[in-house]
Write a protein that binds this DNA or RNA. Structure first.
Lengths: 342, 342
DNA sequence: TTGAAAGCGCTAACAA
DNA sequence: TTGTTAGCGCTTTCAA
């Protein structure tokens, strides 16, 4: 059976008390250098591993944080996770990752599990089906440090890290208009998501500033976010069936952008007919058949900032009350055939 | 401060003993239906969440398992994780995911952390830089259930799940040869990895059976596995500089396949000049500019099987001694221009 | 500078 | 069917 060395074992072997060993191992100021050396050497020799469950049970700290994202297969999230880990590693924090697959119930379950496992904090991107936040509000009120990332929740006051959704959308649409596009469709995932709203606001503002009329029929939502291709295909089919067809489509979602490409391929719609610009952090974007203009979020950097913010809360001596939302620029890349700079 | 309801609180409120409450909550046969109902109703009312750290500390079980993969950004792994979770969810197990970024040291750290967090078992794909397994051997000897996945370790006797590396490689090469290719290069990641060896064996066997001479200069390794593009580019450049240039290349790695495509694009080598077939589980493969024949592993299924095997070990009444290695078929898809069936 | 003792929240013998 | 008691491995008062 699995029987690791315990702190007690060390105490016994070294004829010290458990508390001394514990303190020595944690490099407490009360312990003499000599004792510390003896203890640490012995511990290293027998490959002692402290048990975080026992430690956490007592001290309510675990030096580990939880990361909750909707989908690991989404490069935006995996890049962000790498950013989070780059900081966590440096600061000696472990990370525990879980995905919700955009399910509200899975999210609740995962968050509870992490909280109970005594993570010291949480970095979370909401599931797209989450419209009710009491599970998070409760934890947050109880003192669990939380940082929201990408998809944020207004109702909970804490640090939030998002990309410049409004501005980058605005800029993208503006550029399209200046390039002669007039009928720009808007394709988004779930309408209740913060990112959908912010991106739509950017779209709307650009149209208004350029005196282009808003057309309801050009707005389509695919709540599955592109995981259900038929949904995207249906939306695109509807758009292309309009009397006044769009000449461009702005896709406000990462997975959705690729789903949209696939739909266009299936519907045999050429990229000359319909320009497409979408949010995308896909690595392979340069290898795609159809050149696609895209807005690329600085996911790694966003992850790093999220972790930095979380650490700030965790290690704060006094509760923080003055939270803000970090907005990170995104980079726009124009497909070559449009002949535009990025 | 964070002060969750404890089992004791419930016991106090209901004037029961903690053990009764504990048993009622866990639906023990010893407890009357009435008491169970009272307890469960009350617990639900106050939103009681059991503390798995305390439970785990005592019972040495946590109903959670660890998943360790090299890289979350690799679709093969994220698909496999989804497969693992599909079974874990059903059986009431939580999953804790970590990535090693193919670092040996990160792997050790992550595995230790998980073991200490009392995961009930581990599903792991080795880091490509791991050549020494004492950290795992130790845990395994101590009784931690482990299932190896994709990249396996001969030295440790437990369940292993891999794809049919030899056979699918053999079949792919055979097909290439039958299609007239004669100078088939072999591109792999780290040579010490089980997958590299198995795939090379398939390659070698097919050549031999078809009486094609083995040529050392057609074999190239890219230890970074495609994350360092310059490495791949250099290898491809070397290959194309040979007097007798290859007319096809077989890529024995997921990320490497895409890296290879990118290298060919950069070197402006047409797919007519050089056919490429590689392992790949990329979702977007149908949207790529260059049609690429590919071997697609049944990642989701492999994940499911891994989890099933792990559960078998975890829940075994008596230690299992008779382990085997599950080999799952892979599917070969031929790029259209080759005019072959899959 | 070290040790003794209590207890974190839970489970599992053993008793009743 | 329920309660009592001890203890998982560690940290943390408090005392020495």
């Amino acid at each position: 059976m699995y029987k690791p060395i315990t702190l007690k074992d060390i105490a016994l072997a070294l004829d010290l008390s458990p508390s001394t060993v514990s303190r020595a191992l944690r490099d407490s100021y009360e312990i003499s250098k000599k004792t510390k050396k003896i203890v640490n050497d012995y511990a290293a020799g027998v490959n002692y591993q402290s048990n975080p469950m026992a430690a956490g049970l007592r001290s309510k700290k675990s030096k580990s944080i939880g990361i909750v994202v909707p989908d690991l297969a989404n490069s935006f999230f995996s890049q962000a996770i790498s950013g989070i880990e780059s900081i966590a590693d440096k600061e000696g924090y472990h990370t525990i990752i879980s995905q919700t697959k955009d399910s509200y119930h899975k999210e609740i379950e995962v968050v509870n599990h992490m909280a109970n496992r005594s993570v010291d904090g949480l970095i979370i991107t909401m599931s797209s089906n989450t419209t009710e936040y009491t599970h998070l509000q409760q934890m947050h009120k109880s003192g669990l440090p939380i940082v929201f990332f990408d998809r944020i929740v207004d109702e909970i006051d804490t640090y939030k890290v998002i990309c410049n959704n409004f501005e980058s959308s605005y800029k993208a649409i503006l550029q399209l208009i200046e390039n002669g596009k007039k009928d720009i469709a808007f394709l988004a995932t779930a309408p209740q998501l913060s990112i959908s709203k912010e991106r739509m606001n950017g779209y709307r503002a650009a149209l208004m500033d350029q005196h282009i009329l808003w057309r309801d029929e050009l707005i389509k939502f695919c709540p599955s976010g592109g995981s259900d291709h038929s949904e995207t295909e249906f939306a695109m089919k509807q758009l292309m069936a309009l009397d006044q067809r769009p000449d461009a489509v702005f896709v406000a979602g990462d997975r959705l952008s690729m789903s949209c490409l696939r739909a266009l391929k299936k519907l045999q719609i050429d990229s000359d007919e319909l320009s497409i610009i979408g949010f995308s952090n896909v690595d392979l974007i340069d290898l795609l058949e159809t050149p696609i203009s895209h807005i690329r979020q600085r996911a790694f950097e966003m992850g790093q900032i999220s972790m930095t913010m979380l650490l700030k809360i965790i290690e704060a001596k006094y509760p923080i009350t003055d939270f803000d939302t970090k907005t990170i620029d995104a980079d726009i890349f124009w497909a070559e055939h449009l002949g535009l700079d990025s």
